[in-house]
């Protein structure tokens, strides 16, 4: 059981990688997420859980710059110092999106180019940041296919010819190839068979540990949260109602809603 715990970050860094302050997003009169604040440290995995419609995806999209929040700050420790990414000009934010950040979608179709070979999918981020040596790009792509357990012989196949689990692993390779420091994941194991999920989770755990990635992962599945996340935020109606170490939140939930959430899952 012990080795099923998420690893603790290797070394204590100088400061948080991400500092979120009072982040809110409304859809007209409806709350998407409201007044969310937290810090994320390098190498740390933060899980966001909560029932459907609680604002998990809205929050993640605001953090990743896919949605513009109505209020709040998302301060990222860039290589040039801390910057509020909400206020950044779009070119800079997009550059961040293909270098230090990565986003893994629930549906691989949203995160892959289905008409492009596996190698081209993995190589795209490299080429986007200026890689211009075909041989080197291909070598890196081959290496990454191996790291996500896809046979190198499939490098020229299109993702359409891949199973759902393979597509998701390819999406992960495509995202991690440029060595990001922060990865956003929205239900990365949703929609997969249980056995396929387990393999993907093992793979993710290994990559997160080896690369020292900071991850913000949205999930319905508390088992996934327990396996991957160091800390958990519980959301309800767009607000964070509980926040703490994963084991504490799951084993000793304080909020009545979290107690309900935990018990209902454990009964399944």
């Amino acid at each position: 059981m012990k080795d099923m715990q998420p690893h603790t970050p290797a070394h204590a860094p100088d400061g948080p990688l991400l500092r979120v302050e009072g982040l809110s997003k409304h859809y007209g009169a409806r709350i998407g997420c409201a007044d969310v604040s937290f810090d994320l440290w390098p190498g740390e995995v933060l899980g966001i859980v909560g029932e459907s419609g609680s604002g998990k995806s809205t929050l993640l999209s605001c953090l990743a710059g896919h949605l513009t929040p109505d209020a709040g700050q998302v301060i990222f420790e860039t290589r040039g110092g801390p910057r509020d990414t909400v206020q950044m000009a779009e070119p800079e934010r997009r550059l961040l999106g293909r270098t230090d950040w990565a986003f893994v979608h629930q549906n691989p179709r949203d995160g892959l180019r289905m008409g492009v070979s596996a190698g081209g999918n993995v190589g795209e981020r490299l080429m986007a940041v200026g890689a211009r040596n075909y041989g080197a790009i291909r070598e890196t792509a081959t290496d990454w296919l191996g790291r996500v357990e896809i046979d190198a012989a499939r490098i020229d196949d299109r993702p359409r010819q891949f199973s759902g689990g393979m597509q998701q692993r390819l999406q992960i390779a495509r995202n991690l190839v440029t060595g990001p420091r922060l990865v956003f994941m929205d239900e990365p194991t949703g929609g997969l068979d249980v056995s396929v999920q387990a393999r993907l989770l093992d793979l993710l755990r290994g990559l997160v540990r080896d690369m020292g990635l900071a991850v913000i992962i949205v999930t319905h599945d508390l088992a996934v949260a327990r396996l991957l996340a160091h800390r958990l935020m519980v959301m309800k109606d767009g607000r964070v109602i509980e926040h703490g170490l994963t084991d504490q939140v799951l084993d000793d939930p304080q909020a009545a809603y979290t107690q309900l959430l935990v018990s209902s899952v454990l009964q399944v």
């Binding site: 997009r94 492009v116 070979s117 190589g123 490299l126 080429m127 986007a128 211009r132 075909y134």
Partner: peptide, 14 residues
């Protein structure tokens, strides 16, 4: 943001 243009050339060579 022209990474995609090189993806096309990459696919050609592949």
């Amino acid at each position: 943001d022209y990474g995609l243009m090189h993806v096309k050339l990459y696919e050609d060579i592949a």
